[in-house]
Write a protein that binds this DNA or RNA. Sequence first.
DNA 1: GTGGTCTAGACCACA
DNA 2: GTGGTCTAGACCACA
Lengths: 119, 119, 119, 119
Amino acid sequence: MNFLDYQDPRPIYEQIADMYQKLILKGALQADEPLPSVRKLAIELSTNPNTVQKAYTELEHKGFIYSVKGRGNFVKVDPQLREKKKRELKERLTEIFKEAEEIGISQSELLEPEEENGK
Amino acid sequence: MNFLDYQDPRPIYEQIADMYQKLILKGALQADEPLPSVRKLAIELSTNPNTVQKAYTELEHKGFIYSVKGRGNFVKVDPQLREKKKRELKERLTEIFKEAEEIGISQSELLEPEEENGK
Amino acid sequence: MNFLDYQDPRPIYEQIADMYQKLILKGALQADEPLPSVRKLAIELSTNPNTVQKAYTELEHKGFIYSVKGRGNFVKVDPQLREKKKRELKERLTEIFKEAEEIGISQSELLEPEEENGK
Amino acid sequence: MNFLDYQDPRPIYEQIADMYQKLILKGALQADEPLPSVRKLAIELSTNPNTVQKAYTELEHKGFIYSVKGRGNFVKVDPQLREKKKRELKERLTEIFKEAEEIGISQSELLEPEEENGK
DNA sequence: GTGGTCTAGACCACA
DNA sequence: GTGGTCTAGACCACA
């Protein structure tokens, strides 16, 4: 199963990192559960181990996983993860509402269903 | 006046394009009004003329401006511009709600004010 | 001038990152001052551009520098940097005192000059 | 009882070696007392025997234990052990003070309690 | 010219 | 087997 999208302008390593970030946030991967090994995932995605490595390093920097030398990479325990993500989404929401207001579109107008059947 | 933010991860040409897009959508720039010349703006922003050119090309592709050889770039008349932008914002909104739902956060939970002071 | 120490067990990219971190913390490099380009520094240190790139990415993650595509890498403004570093040093100090106490060495005994001339 | 911390960036063999070093320095393990056998400890820690072996070799190099072929590993008698460790801790202390001075933080400032409530 | 990404492949430390 | 580092070199986006 290959979830990479070469039409996607994002670099491959970022697509990999985002994919696993979502899986972790969703709870599809439990704490301390191992991720696929760098080499295995590289083969599965027909990409270079360095690219997978970069994705994993990124995830480690962001606090989603931790790595144990000679053992592999594992999902990190972080009960506040969901809260963090929620805050990020709220910020992006605020940004959109701000942009809308700048061109005279109110928050409620934006949230309205596509066809406004006012009556 | 320089509105560029080098700490912003977006490339400079994109910041320029976004800036003018906003000005046009807001109505701050009227139809057929000329934009600053590529060279002038490049000097004003202490950046490379190639960069400004790229921003203008981008704006042309998106239908915000048109260029006249030997004369310059001008704001395009497009009564549906606001609708287009609105649709784009709605799409981004939908994307956020989708991401939220994937990790079990409902639309209403996301729209809630930070501290819910119920009643 | 090559400050790399191949006897040092730390990887090269980390030595580079640490070096620049120190220069920034010392104030030897001012905010918005450019770092040497990836390629130039690689040549100067007779190392691979990828290795320098990794060092710079590390510094960016830690908030010491920011990068502008097509322009280079620059020192980030962060007035709290010194405070952060101070806190880190204090933590390491505490760790040492803890280790000392575990084997029955008091803090003051550790701080004493090498030859204790009691008098 | 498993004292390993996989979130700890240090390799596992080092965590094992450090653990026993502490126990010996504290006096919790007496001279000539046997350490657990490589295999037993490996099982207890659910780790690889190679890893435990590496930790023991490390401890032997540092002079904390000695090994007898076919019999096991034992705590070494070394009356100067405490002095050695003290010297090591002092060196690390000096290193911290050096780093602090490089960024203009004095030794006393570093030793100060968090909030200085002078008199 | 400057940074960023990616490949292919080597070599090492660790388990 | 598993991750981590490094080299050599290519190619792209951006300024």
